[in-house]
């Protein structure tokens, strides 16, 4: 395993410090503004569409295993399931990794309980499908066609199967909301889905949905972290352009 150099340690600790500072600032009562994110704003509309059509919702977490990407997808899933339960719409959740199954099942059950409709929870709507990439993709496509799903959420880690899922979803006429930290898959989602979460918007999910001050504070901290990176990038460009000792310093800053 690699270890932090002095430059990397200072940079990472600065970003971590900025995030923690913002969290404690928010905990102290400071309210931060969170800009509107289109993909989150239309979640209720997407659920409403499924209600009107009387068809189920498909929530696909892609190839996510237990990790930060999956936790964000769960944050949105818990909200979607709760809202869908309130209106009596099924949410089908096929899973790629078996280790996330118990957690996902518990979240869905908890969402039904929060909606006051625990008796309507159907355990067979959350299931492990396959841990093979294309077997999983073909399974999800099969569900889309058999169940004639009205709304699709693609949130999590995706690879080559992203376009198969999004295009098949488009062909069944579903409204589609997608988001992934895999930058290579973003163009496919942008082309084939109605709304796409781009970049760090994906990690703002729990803050946007819960509006919990501490989590919103961490989003503010992210902005501070990006300012640090922007400052470093600009300094690097100027330093390397000037040449000489400055260029050598910046070229070796993180080595």
């Amino acid at each position: 395993m690699e270890h932090a150099t002095t430059g990397v340690a200072i940079l990472e600790l600065s970003i971590t410090g900025a995030i923690l500072f913002s969290i404690f600032w928010a905990r102290g009562g400071k309210e931060f503004f969170l800009r509107r994110i289109a993909a989150f704003s239309v979640i209720d509309e997407a659920i409403g569409r499924a209600v009107e059509m009387g068809r189920p919702i498909l929530f696909c977490t892609g190839l996510s295993g237990l990790g930060v990407t999956f936790f964000q997808a769960l944050a949105i899933l818990s909200y979607v399931v709760r809202r869908a339960a309130e209106y009596g719409v099924r949410v089908i959740v096929p899973l790629f990794a078996s280790e996330v199954y118990p957690l996902t099942e518990e979240v869905c059950k908890e969402a039904y309980r929060a909606a006051g409709k625990l008796e309507e929870y159907n355990p067979s709507d959350v299931f492990f499908l396959s841990n093979d990439q294309f077997a999983y993709a073909s399974g999800v496509v099969g569900i889309m066609h058999r169940e004639r799903t009205a709304t699709h959420f693609f949130l999590g880690d995706f690879a080559a199967e992203s376009l198969i899922l999004a295009e098949e979803g488009h062909s069944v006429g579903a409204m589609q909301i997608a988001g992934t930290p895999a930058t290579l898959q973003l163009p496919f989602f942008v082309a084939a889905c109605d709304y796409t979460l781009i970049g760090e918007e994906y990690y703002a999910a729990s803050a946007y949905i819960s509006r919990e001050p501490i989590i919103v504070g961490s989003i503010k901290g992210q902005d501070l972290g990006k300012i640090i990176l922007l400052f470093l990038s600009l300094s690097g460009v100027i330093g390397v352009t000037l040449g000489g000792k400055m260029a050598i310093i910046f070229q070796n800053l993180f080595r």
Binding site: V107, P181, G221
Partner: peptide, 27 residues
């Protein structure tokens, strides 16, 4: 640019999980 945003977002999310600050229904 997207990668920078994702990396910082990933750090923030990891910190929230590490310190158990993520208090949504999913946690």
């Amino acid at each position: 640019a997207i990668g920078f945003g994702l990396a910082v977002g990933g750090i923030a999310m990891a910190l929230r999980v590490w310190f158990s600050l993520e208090r949504g229904m999913q946690m």
